[in-house]
């Protein structure tokens, strides 16, 4: 990705989105990208482009929501990281992005290098090989077969675990629900009701973990000290 290609080979909707974007009509471009995202919701480049539209429209919260979604899928992409940092720099609240423990972070990055399904096939295949070799070890008539079966099964089993772990961690990270504030300012209450005491105020672009939800409220958490209920319409989930 990243190369400049003629739009002739792109999807017609994407051609239209690019034309609108280049002419400064970001609202229309965003609408086209939304239609494309409906078909490929996990496509990081579409998320990135949609984030660009939101950024150009001055909707920092929305831009962070899309850039962050793209970043979670492709954490090593320099362009996505740059645009996310740019958007975060414009967010009024000084809230660090939720980052996992470094071991899980690196496992997640490794997991992002291949589609999760590919990792899954690799893990399953090597697991099957390990099982076969273990069978040879268990029931082989000749000693040399049994020996090779034993060591081979160990190697295959190790590979199976190595293929499984990054993919699993990356998958879990993608599933972890986050919220982004998309309104200029919103209050966070101690209970999911309008009469509850207000705990703190968040501004557009603030990112938080989603812990729970009711019909009209989300329970969000920034850290152990700062958590509370916010109205659904004030945040977007990724």
């Amino acid at each position: 990705m990243g190369s400049i290609a003629t739009p002739l080979h792109a999807h017609p909707l994407e051609d239209s989105a690019v034309v609108y974007y280049d002419s400064g009509r970001f609202e229309e471009a965003a609408a086209f990208y939304d239609r494309l995202l409906a078909e490929e919701p996990q496509n990081p480049w579409l998320l990135y482009n949609r984030g660009n539209c939101a950024y150009k429209l001055g909707r920092i919260g929305e831009a962070i929501r899309y850039f962050l979604a793209a970043y979670r899928i492709r954490p090593l992409n320099e362009d996505i990281r740059h645009n996310l940092e740019m958007a975060l720099a414009r967010a009024p609240d000084e809230i660090p992005l939720p980052e996992p423990f470094f071991v899980f972070r690196w496992l997640g990055i490794i997991g992002s290098l291949l589609p999760i399904r590919t990792w899954w096939i690799l893990a399953l295949g090597t697991g099957a090989i390990a099982m076969t070799l273990m069978g040879i070890y268990a029931f082989g008539f000749q000693e040399v077969w049994r020996r090779w079966g034993f060591y081979g099964s160990l190697v295959a089993a190790g590979l199976s675990v190595l293929f499984f772990l990054p993919a699993f961690v990356h998958g879990q990270q993608l599933k972890q629900p986050l919220t982004v504030v998309v309104v200029p300012e919103c209050e966070v209450s101690s209970e999911p009701s309008t009469t509850a005491p207000k705990l703190f105020v968040l501004h557009e672009g603030a990112v938080a973990h989603l812990r729970d939800s009711t019909a009209s409220y989300f329970l969000i958490m920034i850290d152990s000290r700062r958590q509370g209920w916010v109205k659904r319409e004030n945040v977007e989930i990724l």
Binding site: H11, E14, P41, Q42, N43, N49, H82, M86
Partner: peptide
């Protein structure tokens, strides 16, 4: 911010959904 990614649609071999 950096410019758009061209030919984004269908050009992603990764997971199509979550």
């Amino acid at each position: 911010i950096r410019y758009l990614k061209r030919q984004a649609f269908g050009n992603y071999a990764g997971d199509k959904d979550s």
